[in-house]
Design a protein around this nucleic acid. Structure first.
Lengths: 228, 228
DNA sequence: CGGGTACTTGACAATGGTCAAGTGTGGTGG
DNA sequence: CCACCACACTTGACCATTGTCAAGTACCCG
């Protein structure tokens, strides 16, 4: 697929005219990363931001002792690393590929020029950052106000919805990464999966999973607490 | 002070021309809230956003069982409730005054018109939302990767810095609100304050507090763990 | 087939939340 | 001006949830 066509499918650039898309194509840099490569690290000086074309990228924080909290996992069409473009110069978190990935990189200065000229690009960016803020508000709520079983249940229901609302679903990340996304560790996740399996809420084999008690899962996601 | 002068001092509107400021003044609605009043609730339909002129507003989430997590406390010159202006229609959290407050309300449609015409207003908003994202990333890190003593130490150091870097400082919120800001409850906060007092890191009386062991506090804030 | 990684399980420790009771204090009204 | 009430805060005893450490199993890739 041509670059212009790829760019036109990125939500951030929806609604731009053909000429504007050309300008966007002119400033981007096409990059490929292997699985497990660091894209940038927290506090590193930022010279621009990225859009995922193929692959998966995780954005995360790491504690002193090495525990990791994933803030976001981005896939096709999503952008990351914009904050330092508008704020100050440094990345607020780390970025690493979860799979071999193709990324478009947009240099800061050239992109700022574009956005100042084009109100619809600015509006797209505002709505993207708003979506991001919503996501963070939700994540904070989960981490602070629910226990791990509640977060897990909410995640499974979200995944099911994203995969078409069916009761059969498949994790798109390892359980270790899922643990980090839920703000816990693999051991705890493993135990809780075992517990809700034995209670008949789900059936799990490998990365595939079937929801058997959707109602009970919903209660769990809402209350945030596991009985028993 | 005249409204135009108040508006010109709001960071969001820095760099606007006199004519643009006039337009801003034309669309705003001047409102007053008593202490403890609800400004909006989560999931409520939003028709615009707010800027704090005087007073204090907390933005927070509440769990099923009533535990509260404060996302942000806003004071003079700061704006809140912008997310639904750009994203979809509903507020992602609750807002309530901590003191009697004067707020300027900006209706969504009129504000969107302004921002589309004015690139510098759009850029100000982008940098404000970026700052907000940074704050959330930091909050998530604190909640997920540090224990309560670490969060408390980090907060005290932040407060000290905000109050001029001195070792004497004064809380601007109740300890109960502070607990909610740190993602814990008053009992736990009270115990930890007691513990670090008896270790000689701080001396606390009422809302006033003196830092006695800055180095030790810094270690604590960084490692996130309290020894002993 | 071998080796590393992902995952699971068990025993244990500890952080922090719950419940309950008590202390202190500021503000209001008698 | 003082008494009382409400509310903020503290303290104690208890316990649930979750993290740590250690070991063992399963599985995928070369």
């Amino acid at each position: 697929m041509g670059i212009i066509e790829l760019v036109s499918k990125i939500p951030l650039f929806h609604g731009l005219s053909r000429e504007q898309l050309d300008e966007v194509v002119n400033i981007l840099i096409d990059q490929t990363f292997e699985r497990g490569q660091t894209i940038f690290s927290e506090d590193e000086e930022a010279s621009g931001f990225f859009v995922v074309i193929t692959g998966q990228v995780k954005i995360f924080k790491v504690s002193h002792e090495g525990k990791e909290q994933i803030l976001h996992i981005f896939g096709h069409g999503e952008s990351f690393g914009e904050v330092p473009v508008f704020g100050g110069g440094r990345f607020p978190a780390n970025a690493e590929t979860l799979a071999k990935s193709r990324l478009f990189f947009f240099p800061r200065a050239a992109f700022l020029k574009l956005i100042k000229k084009d109100p619809s690009l600015a509006m797209n960016m505002l709505s993207e950052l708003s979506r991001r803020l919503r996501h963070f508000a939700h994540l904070i709520e989960e981490l602070s106000l629910k226990e791990v079983p509640g977060r897990l249940a909410a995640y499974l229901l979200y995944l099911s919805e994203r995969q078409g609302g069916k009761n059969e679903l498949e994790l798109d990340i390892t359980k270790g990464q899922l643990a980090s996304l839920l703000g816990t560790i693999p051991e705890t996740l493993s135990r809780i999966l075992g517990k809700i399996s034995s209670q008949g809420l789900i059936k799990m084999q490998g990365r595939k999973l079937r929801i058997l008690g959707r109602k009970a899962l919903e209660d769990l996601a809402e209350s945030g607490k596991l009985l028993l």
